[in-house]
Amino acid sequence: MKHVFLASLLAGALALPAYAADYTIMAPAAPGGGWDQTARSLQTALQEEGISGNVQVINVPGAGGTIGLAQFASQQKGNPNALIVGGYVMVGAILTNNAPVTLKEVTPIARLTGEYEAIVVPASSDIENIGQLVDKLKADPGSVSWGGGSAGGTDHIAVGLLAKAAGVDPTKINYIAYSGGGEALAAILGSQVTAGISSYGEFESQVKAGTLRLLALSSEERVEGIDAPTLKESGYDVVLQNWRMVAAAPGLSDEQKAAVLADVDKLAKSNTWQETLKTKGWADTYLAGPAFEEQLAKDIAATETVLKDIGLVK
């Protein structure tokens, strides 16, 4: 009888789903922002889809993600259950802060989502289209003030690339960095700056309400449902995406890396994650493994060039 009981216990144990890992995800930013939202959305999807039994999120804010990145790289070496969320802003922050720890110190897994940059002016502005704004920039770069996020971030990079594409010296741009989206928005709406630049999501409600005029997007092609030309079709060869990614700890074996990649792949294709992308208005720009590593290397090289051009990196 004892054997039968033991056998049924064992069979029950084997029937339970085998969870790959109890993950801890670091969001190297304060709660509430894009990286934090990404980490918490990953937490929900990994648990709801049964990919992981228990997922914790921790926040380590500061210096464009570089403080969290340094902590993650030094403390999680060889830990297959540790993940970190990051993005394009981190690439710029590493270069402008001359950070001792770079993305080479972690194991890139996948690009998950992305948002395109949007260039706006207040509805009261006499600037009707992107061509008129660029004409002003060419005539006197300093007279056009740009309101956006942190210095060396995606917004700043986009303005530098646009200046370059228009034949304007990028070091002459008049970029005003604001620490939060709310501050930048207030300055744009109050006509304290000529134009504003940020991810489209930051401006969407004001564009729809008619208080901001959308001049252009930094996407490769027109985005369905958004009435604005791309910079590329307007004659400026600029395509830029503020992407977000997930990376694993340094020092993983090939098997451990493959297991994490398999979990993230399951997550990216899951109904929960796809639903999250729709709800949040995030683009599905999933790119994983070697293809992502290759793209990341290209993005880092391009960012270094433009930050040198703008004069933020020696």
Rank of each mutant, 00 (worst) to 15 (best):
K266L: 04
S253A: 07
V223I: 04
G12H: 09
L214A: 03
G53K: 07
G64K: 10
K269H: 05
I94D: 12
G87I: 04
V159R: 07
L9P: 05
K308F: 02
F292G: 03
R111K: 04
E221M: 00
L296P: 02
G225P: 06
P31Y: 07
I58R: 14
M90P: 12
V260L: 11
D227I: 01
D227F: 00
N81K: 13
P141Q: 03
L240S: 05
K77A: 12
L287Q: 13
T305S: 15
G153M: 09
P141C: 03
P122R: 14
T38M: 15
D22S: 10
K104H: 01
T66V: 06
I197N: 11
A297I: 03
M90S: 15
A297W: 00
E202Y: 00
T66A: 09
V85Y: 02
S124K: 07
T171Y: 00
G148K: 04
S234C: 09
A20D: 08
A20N: 07
G64T: 06
L69N: 13
G182L: 03
L42A: 14
I84M: 15
A195M: 09
E128K: 15
N81D: 15
A123S: 14
I67E: 14
P141M: 01
A288Q: 04
N242Y: 00
T107G: 09
E183M: 09
V246H: 06
A247H: 01
D140H: 05
K280G: 10
P250R: 06
V207Q: 03
I119S: 14
L9W: 04
A27N: 13
N242R: 08
L10S: 13
S179G: 12
K172F: 05
S8H: 08
